[in-house]
Amino acid sequence: MENPAKAKEGLQDILNQREYQIYYEDNRNFLEVWWDNIKAWFRELLSEWLSGFEPSNGFADTLLVILIGVVILLALLGVFLGMRLVRRKRALQDHQPFQSMNEMEWSVERHLKEAEKQERTRDYSLATRHQFLAVLLYFHEQEWLQAHVWKTNWDYFAELQRKDKQRAEAFYELARIFDEAVYGKRPIAEKEYHNYQEKALKWLHETGEKGIQEN
């Protein structure tokens, strides 16, 4: 009978050959190895958190996929909100709506009268400006914000957003068109002006209506 030691050595030589060793090699790529390690780590974490509970591979894997999906969605939401904030800040340019202390000392009614005067001359951009300043002063009178000559529309928007997001959104739309008309030199057509005026007067309530009636 052949020596058992030689037979064992011969068998080992056969098993060491490439066609046999290939079955024992890890053929996973980097991502597969990384994903399997993450799943193993997560299953261990679940076992530690839920004492006495041994999560099945399928349960742990499904829960891990859901959590990763939630994290990705939250990250995308954060990016979207961040980009939206940047775009809005660019839309509200770094200009002060009040050009002098004298304009701040005007009453809401006086700005509305000036807006109507400019409307009659068909200078709708300037009429838009005074409509907006009337709204801004009205917000100041209601103590929804604090108006100052040095403040920009972005400062006012940020101040309003801390207190009332709905009011801040309405202000943003009025301020955006104001900036486009006054600083962007974008012509305002008659129809657009009347739409703007309607939105402004919704916030002015009786103050705005009274100013127009007294003119």
Rank of each mutant, 00 (worst) to 15 (best):
A189M: 10
Q161Y: 08
E103S: 07
E141Q: 12
R88F: 04
G82W: 03
Q131M: 13
K185E: 14
K89V: 03
E190V: 03
R110M: 12
I177F: 07
L136Q: 02
S125C: 10
Q118Y: 11
Q99V: 09
L92M: 14
L126K: 13
S125T: 15
L145F: 10
Y183N: 15
R122I: 01
K151D: 12
R176T: 13
E103D: 12
Y124E: 01
L85Y: 06
A189Q: 14
W154R: 07
Y124M: 07
I177D: 01
A158W: 00
R110W: 06
T152L: 07
R84M: 08
R186W: 09
E141N: 13
L112W: 06
E116V: 08
L174E: 04
E190T: 02
F98D: 07
E114A: 06
Y156K: 06
R167T: 15
I177K: 06
T152R: 13
M83Q: 10
E119F: 00
E180N: 09
Y183C: 07
Y156N: 07
E141C: 00
Q93Y: 08
H130I: 05
L136G: 00
V86C: 02
M83T: 12
L112H: 05
E141L: 06
E159M: 13
M83P: 00
K165D: 10
L133N: 02
F98T: 01
Q161G: 03
R120E: 02
H140D: 15
E173P: 00
S100D: 04
N153G: 04
Q99I: 05
E143C: 02
F171Y: 15
E159I: 01
Y156I: 14
R167A: 11
